[in-house]
Nucleic acid binder design. Structure first.
Lengths: 339, 339
DNA sequence: TTTATTCACGGAAACGATTGCGAAACAGAC
DNA sequence: GTCTGTTTCGCAATCGTTTCCGTGAATAAA
């Protein structure tokens, strides 16, 4: 800890602690002359207020918690990037917690954050989460929360999402357009609204194209990329008619690539792949991957901005502040595009 | 904040605050019966100690700061993964700060962490950093610090690195073996020890192979992938004799790919590329990328472990606790390997 | 019965900052 | 000279925990 505190400053200046405190906080009650003296010595001695004393007294920590499933993932790391930037601009600190897509961990983390350690929470829900009781507690405690990307719809607060239904529809439509008829759908979060919306887009696109939906083509991924690759591979081996893969998350698109490699399916000749992804080098893959690119950085920025606006103005976060950003379909070689 | 505090518990139980506190901390001074009663009510009411009051009194925050250049980068995000895991196991919280390779930001962040907000710091130095004065202050304040990957050698504390010299040597040797003679070296942190070691490996490998070193083949990357691509592209256009690229960081390997694309150089026929990288899908690139893969997750874990050992036992972090982990050369198509 | 000793707990002072309130000091107005 | 008002500052309470010390009662030792 920085060893110098208010008391020492006060003694050195022959002033009271309260005067020094007010001088440093630029209170109107303190004369300009005193303020100057105090601030001079404070900078000379490198005084920094003890954040814990300050937080205790003020009942606010100038800290937000970010809860995400993973960090080794381009989407989430870009989002963190945006969050951290806004946080710094507003003088806030960022605590980070990873759930590893594990519901129990998410519960524990949320509970631990309910003790005043953070002034607000930004969260992207774990793929396993079905119950929203732990989030309800946050509302009870009046702890401002903003969801991003992976939303819990039962909790009424703001959320930043992308046009998941549209994206799912467009992705599927794109595959259909390219001649696919037996399209596998890979998802991680089937019961999360994000997964359902993407899937609904998939279903509606199929229906609009008069292509029958086959539940057998639905694959729910789990943990571990090897496991997921095996799942896809198995299905590919069982069903030679499959000619398209729509991966609702990046890791599953990769699993799709590997599974195709393993089973000798050529992309895009035999099978076409499209996936949600924020890979900067999706165009350098072999073949380059057609993607739905989410504005991950902007999502982080927006979510954080809404949270901080609420915190600064001491207003509750309203559902009406939610935003839906647009994702972008980038056609590349994996669906027979250029490149 | 969780609204229930010690005083309320004490009143409800007709006990004193100190007794309740001790009961919850399992003090030997409290009878088993009382402990049970207290703990029962505490869990019933969902009591959670106020972390700021506790930190203030105990003079420790149970929080560590992690300072890294970027998070949207597989190496750092994997390292964070390791750090967060160890932190959670030890009951610590993780504050995250990004420097964006900016020295001034690094200084500011380090200064702000010198106020007792964190009990320790894990840091990977920004590429711009040359001065170590801000780190010296940390030692003065006795704030335990562990460097990982990007080390500041002037500061005497533990650091977790990889065998950068060897890796640089092996990477270069590999290119030479594959017939390259005009090897470009791309680096971000030329004055950091990590950059120097990798470059020294490069130089020594050249010397051992009796290949002349041409300073013109040294490219120091900057910010922005477009900028870096342009740099490489320019050099490639100027000098058609270049037949190899050794990228000391992942982003520069990507820049190399793009530059080759732009200039029509075929990989690996015309030019071969090797790069430090933790891309999970390096094998899916076109062509698959020969990499030096660092054990990023393990680096994070080790660095955090050393820090927490020091914190828990209240011992200073010693330089002798430093570790050097081994990187792995994975040969792929970009240097003419299989795949 | 008296004296130590242990046990179980309460009082109160910390930790360092913020802030409501009061009180000197000084000015100007009457 | 008194009164009111402003400026500038100090006192002390407060945030919620932890912990040093003290104390009454019970038990053991003499």
């Amino acid at each position: 800890m920085s060893s110098v505190n208010l008391k020492q400053l006060a003694q050195a200046l022959d002033l009271s602690v309260s005067t020094v405190s007010r001088a440093l906080n630029d209170s109107y009650e303190i004369s300009a002359a005193t303020k100057e003296k105090v601030q001079l010595l404070a900078t000379q001695l490198g005084y920094q207020p003890n954040p814990y004393a300050s937080s205790l007294r003020r009942q606010q920590s100038k800290t937000v918690g970010v809860i995400i499933p993973e960090v080794a993932n381009n989407f989430f790391s870009l989002a963190i990037n945006g969050i951290e930037e806004v946080a710094r601009q507003n003088g806030y600190h960022v605590l980070i917690y990873l759930t590893h897509e594990n519901f129990a961990q998410e519960q524990t983390i949320v509970q631990h954050l309910a003790n005043g350690r953070v002034d607000g929470i930004l969260i992207s829900v774990s793929g396993e989460t079905q119950d929203a009781a732990h989030f309800a507690k946050l509302r009870e405690l009046n702890l401002p929360t903003v969801f991003f990307d992976r939303v819990c719809e039962q909790t009424d607060t703001a959320s930043i999402t992308t046009d998941d239904y549209d994206s799912g529809y467009r992705a599927t439509h794109h595959l259909l357009e390219r001649g696919c008829r037996r399209i596998m759908h890979l998802t991680l979060a089937q019961h999360l609204s994000i997964g359902q919306k993407r899937m609904q887009g998939y279903l509606d696109a199929l229906r609009d194209a008069d292509v029958a939906f086959d539940p057998a083509l639905l694959v729910r991924g789990g943990h571990g990329s090897d496991h997921n690759t095996a799942l896809v591979q198995q299905l590919l081996e069982q069903d030679p008619s499959i000619d398209g893969i729509f991966a609702a998350v990046e890791s599953l698109a990769i699993a799709g690539y590997r599974a195709c490699q393993a089973t000798g399916r050529r992309i895009p000749a035999d099978i076409k792949i499209i996936g949600f992804s924020n890979l900067e080098m999706a165009d350098l893959l072999n073949p380059s991957l057609t993607t739905i690119r989410q504005p991950a950085y902007a999502i982080g920025r927006e979510a954080a901005t809404i949270l901080f606006q609420g915190l600064m103005k001491n207003r509750p976060i309203l559902t009406s502040q939610s935003q839906e950003l647009k994702s972008e379909l980038v056609v590349r070689a994996s669906t027979g595009g250029l490149g």
